[in-house]
Design a protein around this nucleic acid. Structure first.
Lengths: 234, 234
DNA sequence: CGAGCACTTGAAAGATTTCAAGTCCAGTGG
DNA sequence: CCACTGGACTTGAAATCTTTCAAGTGCTCG
């Protein structure tokens, strides 16, 4: 019953009707009215590590990376967010990682207070966001397995297949996968060095498993990648 | 308004009153009535990888590990759960990792259907579990940083300090930290081999930073550990 | 008392990193 | 319009951390 909840209740109510009437809609549609559209240019920060978590976001277009830093400069890229992905809905009071635009980015920004209030009013939204958090957690455990137990070549293969699966037109065979992030971003995501990432990619190119083009790769032999993603020895 | 929700609503209502009247209580108290107490002996599984997620659990005593396996037998221990910790509240339809008793264990088991229904009825419970999921996610990102970017000695130091912080009587200086899990469990948790874990522990013992005893270690110089947890060299 | 398993320790092997050049472009200024 | 500069990307060789392979110790359970 907070002020924030009151001010948004009208548009929310309208959206709710639509969902009731239609098929199982995106639970986030409930938020449609309460967001603001923002544009950010390459390398700008959505929020810094430690910032109060006032807002959460949904990517409209472009690519965002989440980043944690160690005091001595070592960097871990938690993940890359593409169009449709959400960020910060499950934060606590502060963000414990930074979020930065990998490319020019358009996103929709929501006030967390309002989202929280809406969740208390609409169990369906709460359920939807809960499921989203569960998916994130599952992805995090997959990454923990990758970082804890997979070799460099397995990590690269897994990463390429993951990016391919997230591509809009999701065919695997001979599809071009956009890689808007730098090699260094990929390295810091996979717990490797830039050089190792390069060597592995070069190796895949020489085997004709992939073709490297600026800003993207073409998967010429996805089966080989899939095999490689589960086999420690090359 | 499912049947499950109806059958639990009476005891829930009673608990709810208590929470309203008292200080900010454990949101899980709402579940008090709907669980069953279970005992499991060492190495038994709470659930296997891929099992339908019918139940979720709260550890009463003992230690539980979560485990993911690769086809070729490589193993990643996601984490260790101690008394008070929860498991499976944020699962999707299936568990994507196994949960196994590290020691003899007593736990409280809840039916997820009932928990879901209660969440829809009580926004406060939903909020509490949401916050719990957020904490888990934060811990997962910390582990990703550890596995992606920290050296073996940093991993060990971080692990020992983490376990110490979770100890019931939370003093750090000269405190004994129970380590119910095997070296091999620790290795698979930190992305190392058993041998490396042993060597690092031995090293710490020789420096008199810790004292090793069966099933536990004593932190003799926590400051040294803290320094080591953030310094890649030694 | 013996077997088996967890744990420890040492030495050799290996995967990845570090260090060191280059190459290739895109954007800039002459 | 074109050379120049800086950054991203590649590639090679040496160094290093961790693993792998090999024993050996010690403890617990039959």
């Amino acid at each position: 019953m907070s002020g924030a909840a009151q001010t948004t209740s009208q548009q929310t109510q309208a959206t709710w009707q639509v969902i009731q009437g239609g098929k199982a809609a995106d639970p986030l549609d409930l938020l449609a009215g309460s967001g603001v559209t923002i544009s950010l240019s390459r390398d700008r920060e959505l929020h810094a590590q430690g910032d109060r978590a006032e807002f959460c976001y949904r990517i409209v277009s472009g690519c965002v990376r989440t980043v944690k830093l160690l005091e001595d400069g070592r960097r871990q890229v938690g993940g890359f967010l593409l169009a449709g992905d959400c960020l910060g809905f499950d934060a606590l009071d502060t963000h414990d990682f930074a979020a930065q635009a990998v490319s020019d980015v358009v996103l929709r920004r929501y006030r967390r207070r309002e989202v929280e209030a809406l969740m208390d009013r609409h169990a369906s939204l709460a359920r939807g966001l809960r499921e989203m958090a569960a998916r994130e957690l599952r992805a995090a455990y997959d990454r923990i397995l990758l970082l804890g137990r997979k070799t460099a070549s397995e990590r690269i293969a897994t990463f390429l297949l993951e990016m391919a699966a997230r591509q809009p037109g999701g065919r695997l065979g001979g599809c071009k996968v956009a890689l808007p992030m730098s090699r260094s971003d990929i390295a810091d995501h996979l717990g490797l060095t830039v050089e190792t990432v390069c060597r592995m990619m070069t190796h895949l190119r020489r085997e004709a498993t992939i073709a490297i083009e600026p800003g993207q790769v073409e998967l010429r032999n996805p089966a080989a990648l899939q095999h490689m993603a589960a086999d420690p020895r090359h």
